[in-house]
Each structure stands twice: as C-alpha cells, then as structure tokens.
Write a protein that binds this DNA or RNA. Structure first.
Length: 854
RNA sequence: GGGCACUUAGCUCAGUUGGGAGAGCGUUUCCUUCACACGGAAGAGGUCACAGGUUCGAUCCCUGUAGCGCCCACCA
C-alpha cells in the first residue's frame, strides 16, 4: 500500500544509484538505432543554477523517452575547463590567501587549478545525480583531457597549415584586470554614463583652434593625427596643416577622410591607431604610426610624461585638469554611450594593439552557411545563426592565461621562426608560445572530440553525427555556431541533426538571475522543498519553445500537487485491484460504453503525447497528458469504475481492474520522462513489472476501429457526463447539498439508460430515478440529443421559466449561427465535408432540442 | 541603424496543419462521501494590443501602428 501522500524524499531515495549500478545509462546496444546527445559541458567554476537544471532536464526527458521508444541512447557527460572563468576564480581564491599566480609560477598555479577542478567536478556530479540525469559516465570527458588536447592540437595545426589560423598584430579587446585578450563576443556593450570632452587644439601658424571631442582623453598620448571630412566646408582648408596636441604639445597633421561624420561631435576626430579599431584602419590606409600609451595593466606608459604609471582613469582626470588649466577645454558634456565591458571580469575593455592568434573566419563561415544541415528548433534560431555567420569577424583565440590548452606554436629564439607542431618540440633553441587558447576553441570540438576524433574510433563511427544538441539561445554564437563550422571543416558533416534551443530562466519579476541582485535560486533548495520531479516538471512544462520562463515557487508547488494526484490515483487503483490481481483479456468491442470511452481517450492521448514528444514539444505533451489524467481519468472514469467495483458483477470487475491497471501503467510511463523518480516508484508498485521502468517500452497507439455503434456509445457517454454535471450544477445553484436527494425522470428510448441509470443513481443521489419512454413532468427540463431529464423538486414556475428562457435563447443563437453558415453557399462548397456535416448535425440536434423545450 | 520575439481571464503563461479560447495560482458557492482537503463539485471572469487585408471562416496567415523586451552593429 502506498503512502497517503507522495513524499519526494522517500521516492527519490536510492533510485539514481540503482539505475547507475544496473548500467541503464550506458550506451552500446548495437541491435538498436543510436541516439546521441552530448551535454553542454558546465564550467568547473561553481554550482549549477536553474538554467543548468532546465537545460539538462530537457535532455534527460529526451534520453529517457528515446530509450523507451527503442533507441540505443548515448548521452555523454563532461565539463568545461572554462579558461578565463576558472582562472579568475582560482586567482581570487589565491588572492584571499595572499598569493598571486606569479608567486606560484605556471606549474604551481596549474596544480592549484586542477585541485579546484577536482573539487567542483565533485559538486557537479552530485547535482547531476540529484537531477536524475541518465548520463553515460563511462564516456565522461573534460575539455582539458589529454584526448581532447590531441584533438585541439590537431585542429590548430591543420588550420594553421591551411592558412586559416594566423598570428597578427591587430586591435583586440583587452581585459586589463584579467590581463588577457578577449574575442569580440566576450565583450558586452552597456550604456554607460560618461563625458564628452571638447578640447581646443591650437592650429600651427594661426591663433585659431580646432575643437576636437573625445570620450577617452587619456588616449591622446597615442594620437597621431586629427581627421576631418574633406567635404566639410568648415575644415576643408585646414587639411595639410598641423595642430598641437593639448596633452603633450606634439604637432599632429590634419588629414581628410570621408569616414568622419560631419554631423557628429565637432566633425573633427582624433586618431589613435593603437587604441581604437577604426583609427587602426585609418592608420593602415594612410600608413600612420601606431603609438601605444598604456601598458598591459592599463597604466600609462613611458611616453606619457608626468602621467606615466597612472591608472587610465586617474590619468583621464588629471589630464583634463591640466588641459583645462591651460585654457584649452571648450566644454564637457555628460553623455550616455555604449562602453564595452569584459563578460567575465566586468572591467571596461581596452581596445589595444597587440600580437595575437586569430582564426580566419570568412572561409569557415562561408562553408558553414553553405553546408550546415542543422535543424534548429524553433526554426527561427537558424536565422540567428546564419546572420551571425554572415557578419562574423576573425576570431581572436589567444589568451594570456595559464589555465587552458597551450598554443602549440614554437618560436626559434635566434631567428624568430614559427613552428606549429602537434608534437612537443624539445629543441632548446625553441620556446613554446606562452598563451593558451580560448576555451571555446576546445568546446567547439565537443560533439566529435569526445567520441575519440581524430581517431576513427568505434564510438565516433557509431555516435557521430550527434542526434540532438540542447542549449539556451544565448550560447548560439559562442558555441553552436563554432561547433558547426569546425565540424563541417574537420568531419565534413554537421555536428548534430537537431538543435533544440530553450530560453533563459528569470526571477518571478522577469529579471535575470544574478549575483548582484541576489535573486538567484539554488536548484537544490527547490528540490529539498518540492522534490526533483516537481522541479523538472515545472521547468519543462507550461512554456513555449525558445521562450524565457520565470521561476515561480507556486508553480513548482502546483507541479508537486499534480504528481501527488497521480500518486493517489495509483494508490487507489492498486488498492482496488488487490493483491491477487489477475489480468484478463480485454476485447474493446465487448466492454461497456464508459470503458470504451476511456480506452478510446487513452488511445487518443497516447497519440497526441507521442506526436508532441517526437517534436520535442514537451510542454504540449505534458498538457495533453495532464488533461487526460485529471479530467478523463481521475474526475470521470475513476468515479465511474467505482460503480462496477462496488457492484456484484464479478466477471466485469475483472475487466475493469485490468483496464484500470493498464491505464495507470500508461500514465506512469508517459509521466516518467518528466518525473523519473515517481515514475520508477509507481512502476515498481504495479502488479506486473520489469526490474526497472527504464526497460519498458513506450505506449503504442492502437488501431481502434470504431463502428457506428461505438461512435454512438461514446457520444452517449459524453451525454451521461454532461447530465451528471447538469444535476450537480442544479444542486449548487439551488443551494442544495451535493447529497440532497431529488427525484429524476428521464424520458428516453435510448436503451443505454438501463445501464446509465446505475451511474446516475450514484452520482446524483437520486431519491427516485425513473426511466420512461414517454413522460410528462413538471420538473425543470434538460434536453439532450436523445433524452430529456426532468429534475423534480419544489421548483417554482418562475425558476422553470427562467431556465427555459435561457435555454431557448442559447439554442436559438446556436441555430441561427448554424443556419447562417449552412446558408452560405461558399461555406458549403469550400469548407471540408466533415465540417459541413458536423454543422448540419449540430443544427438538426439543436432544432430537435428546441422543439423539446418548447 | 539592422534583426528577433512578445502583447490571450486579476496574476504567470499554454494554445502547430485557420472551424465557438485553456491551465496553474487567485476568486465565489458548496462539500471532511470509503485515492487525494497539498482535495472534490459547480461557477464567475476574455471585442485573444489596435487598424487594415487574405479567406466561406482569423487568437492563428499577410501588411501596418502602438507598447514592452532581447540580440547584433565602429559613430570618435
């Protein structure tokens, strides 16, 4: 006997260990078709949040569903070393201990980082277990594994040899706090309050000034020219002359280029090639020098005179003071403008001239655009992907960090010759590049490198390309697109068939969850409160694909209540069938109408649920199942079945019991991918079961051929339910207790009512229930298709008239609607025949009903 | 500047081949009857943002408008 209340903690106990121990998560059944997913590897930086919970639940539902529908499912787990993020965390920890990474040196620091990794990997494993994820741990990978490392080197070398990786001096985004270069997408632009400084640049050989505006005065030490638009009548004559840089009194040429926007600022722009990408482009065009005025820690360098050694912001302040004192400040405006911040450290990114490694994106992007067969779900994200690919810049992949894949490039100390090699070069004349690769360089190989590529391993041959990748939309640029172009370049195939995109999880007010707001929710707290199944159900239902969701505590509670409903319906069914349950054969054509009805509804439910599951429409699938569980099963059929079970038809009881168990089993299996713990628990409680629900097969849609009589029976069952509802409604609206005994008369020639009267008797608490082929009664009248119900009580004429008027009005409106449609020749000729027939029947029925009422 | 979503019951949201709109929570009335009071029964509550168009028929398709949000983009 099950407990009265579903207790998640008790239900969850031991199940994950059981599944794991039995090897149910391990792929390799060669008799089946493979279905592969790789987990988006979480960063080994900390705890998993609700976003991870959502992402992994979607995958777990898929894995469990696919397994039950006959696939050899491989869901490969792993984690990401997350170069910048992890290094920043480890450094922060060291800082608290009063140590810097430079104190430890590269080797020492890496040892600390690995310690960190081991600790956090343990956390992550525990959380995966809590979530119940069906991961194949025998194939777990880490992005910094040696195997992955070999793939990384191979890719680097190959791209280098093809000229698709190059080393060059360009303006990159520099994070002065973490002291590393960043790629373009690691820069987040935020509208930031700043100032627009207008300075007077004295024109050489004249008493006039040229007013130049800038937001970053500290970069003036790196200025090499002032540009104006040659079409600008105000300044045209100045081109070729010189101005004095108010920061350092150096002369600067005034040059003309149409790049300059006449309308913006003063129409005169300072040019700082070493600190601005656009200015860098101008320097290429006009062969201008590139002067750096900052060091790698964003402090002013040697050329800045008295400002040397100052932080960039301190310098800005002091320099403005100086220029103002010199009488060369025209004005200072407050402005709000987009400023790039480091995604990881939050620091303002400094565009900085630096020698870095880049991936030449154009050829890879074009190939990806031409050959990708990835099917995005929802489809619109394909557009997002393509658009980014069409506009992508070269990818800066070198990072001045230690935690990561070291760049396999070696420099000859004497000649400076560059050697890129997969094998370590031990020649003392060569030194390896100090930098490591962007984390995403290795994550991009995840779908195939985890399977053993570049070796042609059995796993690679069998499980690649992957079937599905599940991720949030914010990661399309970082990861999805890069997997696609690398996969096409190196395997010749798209990395996965489908790419399911979900949204982000927000707090109850729709705000992003963040540390600074303190509005983050720990999945473990939710699990503790409501159970993991309730959390999983909440995360994957009630939302549309690709949309964000809000975390709402009450909704998780509601999910838990739903699971409790299933639990209790199971409790009832198991109780009622008894210990000695014996299955009997069910012949659909021989069961009573209410059984026919529920079996037919179950079949329809399996059909729509399955169709939705196949399309990864988990929210829709759960809705269909929910409606079946609540309305069709619990509220309707379960109650009906009590009539038989409490009666004395022993033979038919056996049929009803078998049907109840079958329905229950189907419900359990369909809810199981969403709620695997309660699914397994209830499954184990069934009278007939395998060792685990994981060995079950998903319900099949039966080919029920409904005869005309069957259809008729189903229609009559609907009427029965409606009649019960009408009677209950009558009682409530007349303030009668539900068990108040009334007298009912049903006028009908419908033979089924001999059977239905039993049900009606039970649910209406009839004082007396008469079935007659012809009745005359003064009771209140409810008209159905081939029956009329009279409820007799001390019913006033007023009441009866009111009800009659209401019914007549309703029917007349319906008839009018039907007639309008059917009198429209276009409707009759153009609408589908079934629809027209349906409307005809409705109209006839309504007319008959109206005649009955009047 | 370009792109993408969203606007449906008081609140949070579903609604997939266009054919009288649903759920959860809240709310009203009633019910501790033998699965479940973390429950049950019966209700109330919606010109599906607005304006056009296509169609026999539009919450759904098309165009435009408004509001809100996200992503991308070098305006110093």
């Amino acid at each position: 006997m099950l407990d009265k209340r579903y207790d998640p903690k008790k239900v969850e106990e031991g199940k994950y260990e059981f599944w794991k121990k039995e090897g149910y998560f391990t792929a390799g059944d060669l008799s089946k078709e493979p279905f592969t997913m790789v987990i988006p590897p979480p960063n080994v930086t900390g705890k998993l949040h609700l976003g991870h919970a959502w992402n992994t639940t979607v995958q777990d539902i898929t894995a469990r569903y696919k397994k039950l529908t006959g696939y050899d499912v491989l869901w490969l787990p792993g984690m990401d070393h997350a170069g910048i993020a992890t290094q920043a965390k480890v450094e922060e920890k060291l800082r608290k201990e009063g140590v810097s990474r430079y104190d430890l040196g590269r080797e020492g620091f890496l040892a600390k980082a690995w310690e960190w990794k081991v600790e956090y990997a343990k956390n992550i494993h525990e959380q995966w277990a809590k979530m119940g994820l069906a991961l194949d741990y025998t194939r777990e990978r880490f992005t910094l594994d040696e195997r992955l490392s070999n793939a990384v080197k191979h890719v680097f070398k190959t791209l280098y040899d093809k000229g698709l990786i190059y080393r060059g001096e360009r303006i990159i985004n520099y994070d002065p706090e973490l002291r590393t270069a960043l790629s373009n997408i690691e820069v987040v632009y935020e509208d930031t309050k700043g100032k627009f400084y207008y300075f007077r640049y004295p024109i050489v050989g004249s008493n006039e000034y040229l007013i130049v505006a800038t937001t970053r005065p500290e970069t003036m030490f790196g200025d090499v020219a002032v540009f104006v638009n040659p079409n600008d009548k105000r300044y045209k004559h100045l081109i070729g002359k010189k101005v004095i840089n108010p920061a350092n009194e150096e002369p600067l040429p005034i040059m003309g280029d149409e790049y300059v926007d006449i309308e913006f600022g003063t129409g005169a722009m300072k040019c700082t090639p070493a600190h601005d990408p656009n200015d860098f482009a101008l320097s290429e065009k006009y062969n201008l020098p590139r002067i750096k005025c900052m060091d790698l820690d964003a402090k002013m360098n040697d050329i800045c005179g008295p400002f040397k050694g100052m932080d960039r912001y301190e310098c800005r302040e002091k320099l403005v003071e100086k220029i103002t004192k010199d009488g060369r400040t025209e004005k200072i405006e407050d402005i709000v403008h987009p400023v790039g911040h480091s995604e990881r450290s939050g620091t303002v990114v400094e565009p900085y001239l630096s020698k870095q490694w880049f991936v030449r994106m154009r050829p890879l992007a074009e190939q990806a655009l031409a050959k990708s067969t990835v099917n995005f779900v929802p489809e619109r994200f394909n557009h997002t992907f393509r658009q980014w690919m069409e506009n992508v810049d070269d990818w800066c992949i070198s990072r001045q960090l230690w935690w990561g894949h070291r760049i396999p490039a070696y420099y000859n100390k004497l000649t400076g010759e560059v050697l890129v090699s997969e094998e370590e070069i031990k020649d003392p004349n060569y030194v390896q590049d100090e930098d490591v690769l962007d984390t995403w360089f290795s994550s991009a190989l995840w779908p195939f490198a985890t399977l053993g590529w570049p070796e042609k391993t059995p796993d690679f041959k069998r499980y690649f390309p992957n079937s599905l990748l599940v991720t949030a939309y914010d990661i399309i640029f970082f990861w999805v697109s890069r997997m696609i172009f690398d996969s096409l370049e190196f395997t010749g195939e798209s990395p996965f068939k489908d790419c399911l995109i979900h949204g982000l999880i927000r707090d109850s007010q729709g705000r992003k969850m963040s540390k600074s707001l303190g509005n983050g929710i720990d999945p473990l707290d939710v699990i503790d409160k409501y159970g993991v199944d309730a959390l999983r159900y909440f995360l994957t239902t009630g939302s549309a694909p690709g949309q964000d969701i809000r975390y709402i505590d009450e909704k998780v509670a509601a999910s838990s209540n739903y699971l409790n409903k299933i639990w209790n319906s199971a409790r009832y069914v198991l109780d009622v069938i008894g210990e000695d349950f014996k299955r009997v054969t069910i012949d659909f054509n021989k069961v009573k109408p209410v059984e026919k009805d529920i079996l037919s509804k179950l079949n329809k439910t399996i059909k729509v649920v399955k169709a939705a599951m196949e399309k990864y429409e988990y929210s829709l699938a759960s809705t269909h199942l929910y409606n079946f569980v609540y309305d069709d099963f619990c509220s309707s059929y379960l109650e009906m079945s009590k009539v038989t079970l409490q009666g004395d038809d022993e033979e038919y009881k056996g049929i009803v019991k078998t049907i109840l168990v079958d329905i229950l089993k189907n419900i359990i299996i369909m809810i199981y991918p969403f709620a695997p713990f309660i699914g397994e628990e209830l499954y184990q409680a069934l009278p007939e079961h395998k060792k685990s629900i994981m060995l079950e097969t998903y319900p099949e849609v039966k080919a029920l051929k409904l005869s005309k009589e069957d259809e008729n029976d189903l229609e009559n069952v609907e009427m029965l339910y409606k009649m019960i509802q009408d009677i209950r409604n009558y009682k409530v609206s007349n303030k009668l207790a539900p068990n108040y005994k009334l007298r009912f008369i049903i006028e009908t020639s419908n033979k089924l009512f001999d059977e239905f009267s039993v049900y009606l008797g039970r649910f209406s608490f009839a004082k007396e229930l008469l079935i007659a082929s012809k009745a005359s009664s003064k009771g209140i009248k409810y008209v159905y298709n081939n029956a009329t119900l009279f409820i007799e009580d001390d019913i006033s004429d007023e009441e009866k008239e009111a009800k009659k008027a209401k019914d007549i009005a309703f029917l007349e409106a319906e008839i009018k609607r039907g007639e309008m449609m059917l009198n429209n020749p276009n409707f009759v000729s153009k609408a589908p025949k079934e629809k027209v027939d349906l409307e005809r029947k409705k109209l006839e029925d309504n007319k008959a009903k109206l005649a009955q009422i009047k």
